[in-house]
């Protein structure tokens, strides 16, 4: 798909949101981690709500997690998605403890299961933005 024809919503690429997606563009899933207390966090924040520290790093995720829950969209509510129905946005629980919204790209909605192991893949959607998506993984 060419850049011009990508009609789906994109993140506002600035600040720590841009940094998150820039890591994805480089093929790495990274989340913020407090360098004082070690707490992982997502979505990006300015400081650690647990210990109050301003110090943090973009720590590399294992890329592994499991399906926490999902919905199956049968009627798109945004003009860019009717061609995708049915599709299943899922919440992925990462091994590091954080959760994020994504898709299990290689899994039809009816085959999704609670706790299904998944691992990250990356889908470049524009020159600037690469989205973290997931594929089925072997149980570890």
């Amino acid at each position: 798909m060419s850049e011009q024809s990508y009609a789906k919503p994109l993140p506002l690429m600035r600040g720590s949101t841009k940094e998150f997606y820039d890591h994805c563009k480089n093929g790495e899933l990274r989340f913020q981690r407090c360098t004082d207390c070690g707490k992982w966090r997502h979505v990006p924040r300015e400081m650690c709500a647990k210990c109050g520290s301003w110090n943090w790093e973009w720590a590399r995720s294992s890329g592994r997690g499991e399906v926490f829950t999902w919905t199956v969209v049968q009627r798109a509510m945004h003009p860019a998605f009717p061609g995708d129905v049915p599709y299943a946005p899922a919440i992925i629980q990462m091994q590091e403890g954080v959760r994020l919204v994504s898709w299990v790209a290689d899994c039809p909605p009816e085959e999704l299961k609670m706790g299904m192991p998944v691992e990250v893949i990356f889908e470049r959607v524009t020159d600037e933005v690469t989205l973290p998506k997931f594929k089925r993984a072997a149980k570890r």
């Binding site: 993140p11 945004h78 599709y87 946005p89 898709w103 933005v129």
Partner: peptide
């Protein structure tokens, strides 16, 4: 939602 939900079709 804009930065982490909408891109995955979670818009409403």
């Amino acid at each position: 939602a804009r930065d982490f939900y909408f891109p995955f079709g979670l818009t409403a």
